[in-house]
Amino acid sequence: MSAKRILSLPQRLFRTLSLLTLLLIVSTAIGLAVGRQRLDVSGLLSDPFARTLFFELRLPRVLMAVLIGASLAVTGAALQALFRNPLADPYTLGVSGGGAFGASVAIGLGWSLRILGIPLVFFASFAGAMAAVLLVRAIARTGAVMLPGALLLSGVVVNLVSAAAVLTLQYLLDPSGALRILRWMIGSLDVVGLEPIGRMLLLLVPAWLALLALSKQLHLLAIDQDTAGTLGVNVARCETAAHMLCSLIVGVTVAAGGAIGFVGLIVPHAVRFLFGEDLRIVLPGSLLMGAAFLVLADALARTMLPSGELPVGAITGLLGGPAFLWLLRRRQQYTVV
């Protein structure tokens, strides 16, 4: 029987995850090695300056890329399944935009408050992302049907309005507040020391795990919503949980690194293309590949110019924009919903 040729699911999952873990290890090694200061192991052992550079700047930055890349890619994969739309991602759906607005309100007003050790910025960003998801979903849904065009358009509009709101905020605030927002928006992956990484891990890891735990449900939803409903998936509850988790993850990443576009779009598609459509493979696969991708993109951003560096968002945008257009073209061959 022809179906026997295909590897069984556990085999496929194992193969995918080991390949991608290897990729992540290699790209992390590259990310740690390259930069304006070339670092090697012997230097790290003998030179205290190199050690400081490594632990205070290089390592945190690479870890930041790992966290943000993994987060954006896994939410992208989840949102695509949730909305059954191959063009969905935190950026195109306006989730990043909403989060960015929430974060800039907190940053601009200089709220340095913490709740349980977690900066208020994270909460503000989460709230903004959540509001964006709810808004986009409410607009695009008519009855039980989600209109794919309306979904993306409302995402675009939410992004534009958020960007305008951030801009307005900058003009309304005193110069120091405006500057803080500006620096945050440019700041992207720059981070000093490992402490902020630890704070992010505290929120992100549980959210990742919770999202991965939903991968069976998301798999069934990606195939067909009605069918999922009769296959034992509580559709409404699953959607709500996935929306909240995606908003939380995107909120945290946006608060920490600004809105980096298209990672959540390209990476899940690459994983699908290479390893098949099963969400139970695509979700963990995207997590790993997203991390590797952003680490490499950041390494590129740091070394491409003879002096200074490019923001990593520029690299992902330059790669992601064309990829989006290519998908849009292909999308016309998909079934019209």
């Binding site: 295909i6 695509q80 069976k216 069918t227 296959l231 459509e277």
Partner: peptide, 18 residues
């Protein structure tokens, strides 16, 4: 059923086992 993503037929049928 309006499956948007290019799932393989066997995978769709297999979802009935879930």
């Amino acid at each position: 059923t309006s499956t948007v993503f290019p799932f393989r037929v066997l995978d769709v049928v297999l979802s009935g086992r879930s």
